[in-house]
Nucleic acid binder design. Structure first.
Lengths: 187, 187, 187, 187
DNA sequence: AATGAATGAGAATTCATTCAT
DNA sequence: AATGAATGAATTCTCATTCAT
């Protein structure tokens, strides 16, 4: 009677790091198994394919963001500025750990023409993120402007993450965050 | 049947499309050979490995940008605004063709932790791009501000390209371009 | 269909025959897989490359000789002549089966300038063989003479194996054995 | 009108070195072309296949030995001992140059079960060599004894060449030569 | 004669996946 | 649940050979 060495969530978390660092196609099931401390075959008890695992990772991460981070938009005990500061703090935590980068952007770009159902799931993540910014900005801006600023902010952050990775310099992300805060303040 | 069917540049151009659409790891030498209309083995006459071919593609594209696009920064017969408009027109041409997207960003993200010498080459591309914006902005802004605006603009465009691909909507890129122009005008 | 169809030792033994008959470079992993009754890919569960498999074969054979054949040198219940007779009987068994020939000599010659770490392993085999003869001869000869006779004997046998293969005639090996015995007796 | 850069003999001589150092299967037509200073395709003007080239090399070398070396057996102006000394000097010249080794032995072992018509040609070489020794020994020994001593000598030399290559030590060959001379003298 | 591009079969190796235990 | 052997298709790369120029 074998002992449960891992569970689905454990596998998701461990493979998340690997997918984030290496991308989808470069990561092998053997890489993931090793990262989880189990054997390749055992992965198939939890996920019936690599695609399904990747989808579970995307879903898990989306829910994590929605529940733990983007949910800040509905808080009543802090103001808009504080919400933005919270978002940036969390972004920096996540985009700077495990070699840095944003899994959604990396996997999104890598698979957009190749595995369309990943793209659908990734859309949900970006919609949630944009909608979070939108709601915060709608304090101070009319709806259309809030929407545009939200898309603008997400784009700016993702572009900065790219430059950060390419040049190995965190300043890009920090500057982007600062600009977003400034746009909010100076309105 | 011998006879020159292709040459190095032809292969680079054809594989560029494939790498841009599918990424590095998903693209096989067979895909490229098919795109070039030759056989797999023949590719190895021109490039001794898939990595070498990818590097040639990156170099080719960087030189293309430097010579045909970023070189606008030194033109004397047009003003800063016109230079920016030229850049955006070219960006839109390139980032919207062949399934859309920016090869440098896609390959950069996919390989940053995995094939470091690609990253070095990709850095050169982004340096050239930033330096092009920098010089244009330095008409109207002090050096430090010009630099920051340049990095800002590149990040914003790349982030927009990401959203554009994920949501299949060109508006993101166009808005980013508009914002960059506005920042230049309203200064 | 899983179930253990082979194990490392089985693969080593089956590939030994193939390497002995065809040499290292001519033998393909597909040849070996077929000889083992498994698929090519399955070989890589046991050995991570063709080189590693070849090395395992060399090591296995060296140990087999050391444990089962050259170890005769330390027996106390038989005399030197009987030891020599035992060695020759074993030699004939091995050098005359599976198309005949000596794997160590064949692989040694084929790879000496090309895969140096094979040569190191093959040296060990020949050292053990020479040292076996040496100890037997040291009964009747002073140390230096015993050493020279040992090297002489091994060379003579290997040269005879070559002629035997080229001319498809076992007499060469048998004559060499006879001469070695005579040198021991007539001393 | 292209200039004759090479001729058949030049190609044979240059590929001889390569085949001797690397063996038949490991040596590619590209290796040979490079060694000859021509392009791969050009080799096929002179030899219609790799096998045919190898055969030409074997034939060339056999004739060289027969004409320049083994022919010593018929000289009237030197005695048997001097003939042996001449043979050994030539052997040492050849077996010690270009990484050392005997092409006939190396190619013979590598291809004996795989390309039978090489073996036939190689037999001729060894027959000539044995017959050379035979005739020299027949000065002092009865025919049967001379034959056996001749085979014995060739085997001993080839085995020594093997040990010489494996241990990178010329002493093995030199000792073998000495023993052969001694057998002649002390008769 | 010489070139060198092109071929296509085949090499080693990888990898997602299956399945009996 | 976990294993790990086995699969077989796919992947990168090699190489002897052909042939138009």
């Amino acid at each position: 009677m074998p002992i449960q060495k891992v569970d689905k969530e454990r596998i998701i978390k461990d493979s998340l790091k690997t997918f984030k660092a290496q991308g989808y196609h470069k990561t092998t099931m053997a890489d993931i198994a090793k990262a989880c401390g189990i054997l390749k075959g055992s992965l198939y008890h939890y996920f019936k394919s690599k695609e399904e695992l990747m989808e579970a990772v995307i879903d898990y991460l989306t829910q994590y963001y929605e529940n733990k981070i983007f949910s800040v938009k509905n808080k009543h005990d802090i103001n808009g500025y504080e919400k933005l500061v919270f978002l940036m703090k969390k972004s920096e935590e996540i985009f700077l750990t495990d070699n840095g980068g944003c899994l959604m952007a990396s996997i999104g770009l890598e698979t957009v023409n190749v595995i369309p159902h990943f793209t659908q799931k990734i859309q949900r993540f970006f919609k949630s993120w944009i909608s979070c910014f939108e709601q915060i900005f709608s304090d101070k801006f009319p709806p259309e402007k809030a929407t545009e600023l939200a898309e603008y902010g997400v784009a700016e952050i993702e572009g900065s993450v790219l430059l950060m990775l390419i040049f190995q310099d965190e300043k890009y992300l920090k500057h982007a965050h600062q600009r977003i805060l400034n746009r909010y303040i100076n309105s």
